[in-house]
């Protein structure tokens, strides 16, 4: 008897947590609709909210939309925009499109990786501050090489220039705190 009550209470608790966690997701799904063509826009908004696509949320979306989890994972893993791992607070995108490549995007990339201490294929720093990715063209090729930090584009980059920008970023953050 006692045991039962306890489990019930726990279940109740869990479902509240569960509900809260998915409240935002539900809101997004309700707003964009449950048709298949809404899947990508839904994933985009959910990622905006969480900065990545947590696995349990993908499963939840599949359930809510009446799709097989495999289709949702299939879409989430196909497109480069989606990340199944948490991303850092600052997402640094280094353009390695043709225009940027021939004007020296590689040294800029190396400088950034060295600065934030990323080696090998790792993309995100342990402390979840920085994610460093390469993309192929940000459409600002006239200013090659180009780097984008969150939504801000920086053109005509050099290893020195990007270090100055990151200095400013860190300084600004220290002041905010």
């Amino acid at each position: 008897m006692k045991q039962e009550v306890l489990t019930e209470a726990m279940e109740g608790d869990r479902s509240i947590v569960y509900q809260r966690k998915f409240e935002k997701v539900n809101e997004i799904i309700n707003r964009l609709g449950k048709s298949r063509s809404a899947l990508i826009p839904i994933l985009q908004e959910v990622q905006e909210e969480y900065r990545y696509l947590p696995e349990e949320i993908l499963t939840y979306i599949a359930m809510a939309m009446g799709l097989a989890p495999a289709s949702v994972f299939g879409v989430a893993t196909f497109y480069a925009q989606f990340s199944l791992e948490p991303k850092g607070k600052y997402v640094i995108k280094i353009c390695d499109g043709t225009a940027c490549h021939v004007r020296g995007s590689d040294p800029v990339k190396e400088a950034i990786k060295k600065r934030v201490n990323l080696t090998g294929n790792k993309k995100t720093t342990e402390d979840l501050r920085y994610t460093v990715e390469t993309v192929s063209c940000l459409g600002a090729c006239g200013l090659a090489p180009v780097v984008m930090i969150n939504d801000q584009i920086y053109g005509q980059m050099t290893p020195e220039a990007i270090n100055v920008i990151l200095d400013q970023l860190e300084k600004g953050e220290a002041e905010d705190e």
Partner: peptide
């Protein structure tokens, strides 16, 4: 959502369909 092949017309249509 970031896939070069989606510029190809049939792939693009598949992408619009989700």
């Amino acid at each position: 959502a970031g896939a070069f092949v989606c510029g190809e017309e049939t792939a693009l249509l598949a992408s619009i369909e989700g």
